[in-house]
Design a protein around this nucleic acid. Structure first.
Lengths: 112, 112
DNA sequence: ATACCATACCTATTGAAAATAGGTATGGAT
DNA sequence: ATCCATACCTATTTTCAATAGGTATGGTAT
């Protein structure tokens, strides 16, 4: 039903890139890690994360590596240098945006 | 071309409601006010603002009032009490989200 | 042994919302 | 008389999160 709820656009991408900056992770792990890291405030399901990972890999921001672990296959993702640059850009965008909005919200209730 | 760029979803609505909390404004004025208030960081054009105003009015969050000013007609919008409640809800949502993301971004680069 | 749940991957469809790119009309300034 | 700023509007496109599935394996409980 709900499509892109408030303030979510671009957030999964930003968080995934940020978490992968710390260490390589596989998809199923990322789903849990995003939710954990944000205290469940942001908790995109697999239907969001997997297509995102594929898109980011296609864009050359992530590098995928299939590793058999305990008879199962996990696809580990790591940041490319291009991915690092995108992370910085997105972080900057987000910071500017957040500061601007914060400013308006806290601004005087008595107009300009 | 671009559809819903990063972090913008719900932002025009939040900012419009916030600005109208201070005083009644008309559409064309709001377009400029949003850009001004955010230092051009967020600057939705008329194609975003007008449909948004109509949707918010339809939802009962805004009350519209047509006023002839200098031979021209301006449509002034004001917050309803329902609109005020929505503003509070959205502000809360945004704050929680912003705090969570900030936390992840600033978090240790050495993983969990 | 068998049923069941967690793990681990995947995709097609839907819905919402911003951006683009227009269009109409009036008033004032050059 | 022309042109720009004001002031309203809408149809179409594009993107992306969300929903709601589906497949397969390993381990645990009955």
């Amino acid at each position: 039903m709900a499509a892109s709820p408030n303030f979510m656009t671009g957030v999964p991408e930003l968080l995934v890139l940020r978490l992968l900056q710390d260490r390589e992770m596989y998809g199923y792990e990322i789903v849990a890690a995003v939710a954990e890291a944000t205290g469940q405030v942001v908790a995109p399901k697999e239907g969001v994360i997997y297509p995102l990972l594929h898109a980011l890999e296609q864009e050359g921001l992530l590098r995928a590596q299939r590793r058999p672990v305990g008879g199962r296959i996990r696809v580990y993702y790591g940041l490319t240098s291009k991915g690092v640059r995108r992370l910085f850009d997105l972080s900057d965008d987000w910071s500017r945006m957040a500061r601007a909005i914060q400013h308006v919200l806290k601004g005087p209730t008595h107009a300009i």
